[in-house]
């Protein structure tokens, strides 16, 4: 091609491509913006059910939880985030039984790998959706998950956790062990969650 024609046509192809680019931004100028206005949209913000924010231990309305203090979660945690301490207590029929004393979880070192939740044989712990975890004091990161005065939920019969991972995926479903509890459980649990969150804050 004649170099002069090439020179001129080069200018025009370049101009065409440039205008193509300008058109994209021009159209974008009038489109709906994607920014989410976070603190304002708190009400409408949807956090997916499975979102892993804070580990918590659901308690029912009798202030009972499902943790048997077996320590499996503690051993499975890759970061040493969980500390389970337990006492030996004697039950009425004279047997020795391990009872949860303190269940301490460190928000600061947790890497949210979910191993503790999927390995827990009694489904006693779950992740909740409360993602607003920022705080001013590092000591607040270390939390006790079992509530004061709470105790182990009595079991009528030992139930195997059916597909623990599946259960864990739905944090709103309380691990109901008794038939009649099943109905009230989700609501009670939600109320539970809220109160425990407040405490944490």
């Amino acid at each position: 091609m004649n170099p002069f024609i090439k020179y001129i046509s080069g200018i025009f192809t370049a101009l065409k491509a440039l205008i193509g680019g300008l058109r994209v931004t021009w159209r974008e100028l009038w489109r709906k913006k994607v920014t989410m206005q976070y603190p304002e949209n708190r009400e409408t913000l949807v956090i997916s059910d499975r979102w892993r924010s804070e580990l918590h231990m659901p308690h029912d309305e009798n202030n009972e939880h499902a943790c048997t203090a077996c320590g499996i979660c503690m051993n499975n945690c890759p970061n040493g985030t969980i500390k389970v301490t337990s006492n030996m207590e004697e039950t009425e029929d004279g047997k020795k039984k391990r009872v949860l004393d303190k269940y301490v979880w460190d928000y600061g070192t947790c890497t949210f790998c979910n191993l503790c939740v999927i390995t827990c044989p009694s489904d006693a712990i779950q992740f909740n959706n409360d993602f607003e975890g920022a705080m001013y004091d590092r000591s607040k990161l270390i939390r006790q998950l079992n509530k004061p005065g709470s105790k182990l939920r009595e079991k009528e019969k030992v139930e195997k956790p059916a597909a623990p991972a599946k259960e864990a995926a739905k944090p709103t479903e309380a691990p109901a062990k008794k038939e009649e509890k099943k109905e009230i459980a989700p609501e009670a649990k939600k109320a539970d969650e809220k109160s425990s969150d407040k405490e944490n804050k």
Partner: peptide
């Protein structure tokens, strides 16, 4: 402001 609008922001 205009930059933001070009970039789909507020």
């Amino acid at each position: 402001k205009i930059t933001a609008f070009f970039q789909s922001r507020l």
